[in-house]
Design a protein around this nucleic acid. Structure first.
Length: 717
DNA sequence: GCGAGTTATGTTTTT
DNA sequence: CATAACTCGC
């Protein structure tokens, strides 16, 4: 390795880079130069004679994979991106790797390699169907809940239907088991995998087929996994299998930045690393090269409030800078306005817009910020890539392409069979479905056999035949490049015509589709062997941050989750209020664990900032159309000296400031109860001295209280 | 079969 | 408040 590069590393970083063989755990705090270490490590491996294609690096997003790819090229390591040529290092997300493995070993995994990847919308359809098929009602078995249980409790923990059957002992669990079973068979019928299946099927393949496991372990002689604290059980099993022949695993992560427990990430993976690989070398990177001491002090005093945590220091290396600013505003509009004004002030000081970012807890918060930025004519970008793919016109065109690749994909077929309108309505579809069910055929096969469906009259038969012919015609081009086929489908399906005729909104839609087609053309150009299957499977794994355009000079707006792994000179974190951060849906749980995850999320946000950090909350916020008084986040009081009474008295909300003389309550009032604490009035039933107040408390529980006994007091502003 | 208009419903974070 | 599901009249 070049001496100049060597010079750039600290002793700990060098140790992490040059410990080549055997298991290595890099516990890397925020801003510790972790990404640099990983890319240098890839270069060092190749320097020491390892073949590039024997290296497999796993990142958290495609964006991170692409960046690592670029950096590795600069270092001369000639790594490839998510697409696999065979002679270069494999750098991708876990999900992309699984797609690759499942396509390689489709026969062994007993799946058709043309599988569709179902996103949450598709999943919701299937789970609703499954619940209905099990003759259970959706009130007692809410589809969203069922899906969450199946995804996070079962699939991510590699509990398949059979395993679950064996342990399901009460009525509810048995019902869930039936739903799970039905859901999986619906997916199988449609030759579709959901996000969890990608991991679970791969993990099972590696567990059940020792030869496949051995082959892959020989292929990937060195495995690097970034953000290891956010891996789940399935990913752990896959990693363990890949390194089974050599134990050359290098994991990097930070337990304090674990923010995906809610979707199955298991912090024990990183905690137990040393017992999983007893000869593991552990390197700690505690020096922080990113943020000023001012920012790190705030981050540190926040995160020490987590009980369930190993102590770890943030060691600043930068000079002191600006103090962290914490402000209160009257409402979210003023808060956003203040952000915009601060942006302008910074711009006046010569700061580029690309060096500023605004973080929030929920996507809905982006709207009011957007308004303020538009009003002040400040260029911005909302970092939300999947939004594009959720547009109706995009989903429609993609549904055509999916149906061409995988005719068993009933969701895609049903979406396009009458889009644009071609006179195939609900009755016709029901009749085809009935025929398919009766003759145990797939929906598409039934469509092909439309002439033998007696319940249909001549006209619908002809329309269906035309539709099938059109799809079959498209199929001839499935092997080649994607963009030309997409273009052809767009025109010949009639989608373009129908959009053209639907007024000015239609033109926007056409432009969006054109954008999709140019993106596909880029894919065709950048991929050695472009294919429609590969393209569809790739874009299904697209993440929000993948759309982040770092080349344009705009302020970035994104959720705290999306901000993970990024850094900015100037950071704004808005809406730091009880119910929002921590989010009410997380503090509603019994356990502190969810509150601690929210705290880690805030910690992640804070530690993205390099030189300036602005934290704010609004005293009033309109939530679902209701103007509500907010409570400042408990986290604000944990930030150390910054948010104390002497400096922030007028902005600081006083918890003891309430009076006891109020007997009239209104919906939305903030109240305090002796034992339940703070809460908000949901309903006031006025019956004189027997009045009942329904209160939703901060603990998450909702109580109906008799006013005269409750000892409720209204909390004043 | 189709679309407009109405009513119910459900609200975090994401690969 | 925003979207999905549903009804009704053509």
């Amino acid at each position: 390795m070049h001496n100049a590069l060597w010079q750039q590393l600290t002793p700990s970083q060098r140790k992490a880079v040059f410990h080549i063989e055997g298991p290595l755990l890099v516990l890397a705090g925020p801003g510790s130069g972790k990404t640099r270490v990983i890319t240098y490590r890839i270069a060092a491996l190749i320097d020491s004679g390892v073949q590039p294609h024997n290296i497999c690096a796993i990142t958290f997003t495609n964006k991170a994979a692409n960046e690592m790819h670029q950096r590795a090229i600069v270092l001369g390591a000639s790594a490839e991106g998510p697409r696999f040529a065979g002679t270069q290092s494999h750098i991708s997300t876990f999900h992309s790797l699984c797609v690759r493995i499942l396509r390689w070993y489709a026969d062994r995994a007993e799946i058709n390699p043309n599988f569709s990847i179902y996103d949450e919308t598709d999943q919701a359809r299937c789970i609703k169907h499954a619940v209905k098929d099990c003759e259970l009602d959706t009130t007692n078995f809410p589809p969203a809940r069922m899906l969450d249980a199946i995804s996070n409790r079962l699939k991510n923990n590699l509990i398949d239907v059979n395993k679950f059957k064996a342990i399901a002992d009460d009525f509810f669990t048995q019902a869930l088991c039936r739903i799970y079973d039905r859901y999986q068979s619906i997916l199988a019928q449609q030759n579709a995998l959901d996000f969890d299946d990608l991991l679970m099927k791969t993990a099972c393949l590696l567990q059940n087929c020792p030869d496949v496991c051995g082959e892959l372990s020989n292929r990937f002689k060195f495995l690097l996994i970034d953000e290891y604290q956010d891996t789940n059980r399935a990913q752990y099993v896959i990693a363990k299998a890949i390194v089974s022949q050599h134990n050359n695993i290098c994991a990097t992560g930070d337990p304090d930045q674990s923010i995906y427990r809610w979707r199955g990430a298991d912090i024990r993976n990183i905690i137990n690393f040393e017992s999983d690989w007893p000869n593991a070398v552990v390197v700690k990177l505690e020096e922080n090269f990113r943020s000023t001491p001012n920012i790190l002090t705030v981050a540190d005093s926040l995160i020490v409030h987590n009980q369930n945590r190993k102590e770890k220091r943030l060691v600043p290396t930068k000079q002191s800078g600006k103090d962290v600013v914490i402000s209160a505003f009257e409402n979210e509009a003023e808060e956003s306005q203040a952000v915009a004004q601060q942006v302008e002030e910074l711009t006046g000081e010569g700061v580029s817009l690309r060096d500023m970012a605004v973080f929030y807890r929920v996507n809905a918060q982006s709207r009011v910020l957007e308004e303020a930025f538009i009003q002040n004519k400040i260029p911005y970008q909302i970092v939300r890539g999947v939004e594009f793919y959720n547009r109706k016109e995009i989903r429609n065109l993609l549904a055509y392409l999916k149906a061409i690749v995988n005719p068993d994909d009933e969701i895609a077929l049903l979406r396009i069979i009458n889009t644009p309108a071609r006179g195939i309505g609900k009755t016709t579809i029901d009749r085809v479905s009935a025929y398919a069910g009766l003759h145990k055929k797939s929906f598409f096969d039934a469509l092909k056999k439309v002439q033998s469906i007696d319940s249909l009259s001549h006209a619908p038969k002809a329309k269906i035949a035309g539709f099938v012919n059109m799809l079959e015609g498209f199929k001839k081009d499935v092997a080649g490049k994607v963009a030309p086929l997409a273009e052809r489908v767009f025109t010949e399906s009639g989608l373009e015509k129908s959009l053209r005729e639907s007024g000015p909104d239609g033109q926007d839609a056409i432009d969006n589709v054109k954008e999709l087609i140019s993106a596909a053309a880029l894919y065709d150009q950048q991929t050695e062997q472009p294919s429609l299957v590969d393209y569809l499977q790739q874009i299904a794994l697209f993440s929000d941050v993948d759309a982040y355009d770092t080349s344009s000079n705009r302020v970035a707006l994104m959720t705290l989750h999306t901000a993970k792994g990024l850094e900015f000179e100037n950071v704004f974190i808005v809406g730091v209020e009880e119910g929002l951060l921590p989010h009410e849906r997380s503090s509603a749980g019994e356990k502190d664990e969810e509150l601690e995850e929210e705290r880690r999320l805030f910690f992640v946000g804070i530690t993205r900032a390099k030189s300036a950090l602005y934290i704010s909350y609004a005293r009033y916020r309109t939530i679902r159309g209701q103007l509500l008084r907010t409570i400042p986040s408990q986290f604000l009081f944990e930030l150390g000296t910054v948010f104390d009474e002497s400096t922030q008295k007028e902005q600081c909300y006083d918890y003891d400031d309430y009076n006891e003389s109020n007997w009239q309550f209104d919906t939305g009032d903030l109240v305090r109860h002796k034992s339940f604490g703070l809460g908000r009035v949901k309903e006031f039933i006025d019956m004189g001295e027997n009045s009942v107040v329904v209160v939703k408390f901060n603990s998450g529980q909702t109580k109906s209280l008799l006013l005269k006994y409750a000892g409720l007091s209204k909390v004043n502003i």
